[in-house]
Amino acid sequence: MSQAISREERIAAEWACERLVKQFAQLNDAQDHDGIAALFVEDARFSRPLAPEDYFEGREAIRAMFRDRPQRLALHIMTTILIEPTSATTARGRCYLMYVSNSDASAAQPAPVEGAPMYGQFDDEFVLTGEGWRFSKRRGSVVLKG
């Protein structure tokens, strides 16, 4: 850590950043593009797991990417979330991702999974803003694919 923070600040940061990770998954699955964009700072960087070096730069570009991609019935299952505060206003983290989907966004449920699950991770950077903790950088990557 670059500066000392209290136990309470550490716990609050870990909780808030872990909550962002979980919100991202649920908002993504609900196709709530505005909600997803609100989790990021204005100048954030985001890359999808299938294209980890292809960043979308800025909140509006992130919103547009989610809005304009083909819609699918999907579940993003985030697990093994570990957050490390690096100061009173910054943190980094990693979570593992399992992704399953069906190309028919309106498929009757339970819908069959198309293809094999994808397993990956997100490496995150967080910053505390006047609106609370937000993603400043989110880099996805695929680790295993069926």
Results as ranks from 00 to 15, higher is better:
Thr86Ser: 10
Val127Pro: 04
Arg63Pro: 13
Ile83Ala: 12
Ala74Ser: 15
Ile5Gly: 11
Arg19His: 10
Ala61Glu: 14
Val143Arg: 12
Arg63Leu: 08
Pro112Cys: 09
Phe40Asn: 04
Leu50Ala: 11
Asp54Gly: 04
Glu42His: 10
Ile11Leu: 15
Ala91Pro: 14
Leu20Val: 11
Val127Phe: 09
Met1Ser: 14
Arg7Lys: 09
Gly130Cys: 00
Arg138Gly: 02
Asn102Tyr: 10
Ser47Asn: 06
Lys137Phe: 00
Ala74Pro: 00
Thr79Asp: 07
Glu84Asn: 11
Ala88Asp: 08
Gly120Glu: 05
Gln31Asp: 14
Glu42Arg: 10
Tyr55Gln: 03
Ala44Gly: 13
Asn102Arg: 13
Ala88Phe: 01
Ala30His: 13
Arg138Val: 06
Thr89Gln: 14
Leu20Gly: 06
Ala38Gly: 02
Lys145Met: 11
Leu97Ile: 05
Glu84Leu: 11
Glu14Trp: 05
Ala37Glu: 00
Gly146Arg: 08
Ile83Gly: 06
His33Asp: 15
Arg69Val: 10
Leu73His: 02
Ser101Tyr: 03
Phe66Met: 09
Phe122Tyr: 15
Glu8His: 07
Glu57Val: 15
Cys95Gly: 10
Leu50Trp: 04
Tyr119Gln: 01
Phe46Ile: 08
Leu39Met: 11
Glu84Gly: 00
Glu42Trp: 02
Leu39Gln: 11
Ile83Asp: 01
Val41Ser: 15
Thr89Cys: 13
Pro117Trp: 02
Glu14Ser: 12
Leu73Cys: 08
Gln109Glu: 11
Glu131Gly: 05
Arg63Ser: 05
Glu84Ile: 09
Ser136Arg: 15
Ile81Leu: 04
Ala61Pro: 00
Asn102Glu: 03
Arg59His: 06
Ala13Cys: 13
Val100Gly: 01
Val41Phe: 08
Glu53Val: 02
Leu50Cys: 06
Arg19Ser: 04
Met118Phe: 05
Ser106Pro: 03
Ser87Asn: 10
Gly93Ala: 13
Glu8Gln: 11
Ala51His: 14
Met65Phe: 12
Ser103Arg: 03
Tyr119Pro: 11
Ala16Met: 04
Leu144Asn: 10
Cys17Tyr: 05
Gln121Ala: 15
Gln71Ser: 07
Trp15His: 13
Thr90Ala: 10
Glu57His: 14
Arg10Val: 00
Ala64Asp: 10
Lys145Ser: 14
Phe126His: 11
Ala116Arg: 12
Val127Glu: 15
Gly115Leu: 07
Phe122Thr: 01
Ala107Ile: 11
Gln109Trp: 03
Ala16Gly: 02
Phe46Tyr: 15
Glu53His: 12
Arg19Cys: 01
Arg48Asn: 05
Met1His: 10
Asp29Asn: 08
Leu128Ser: 06
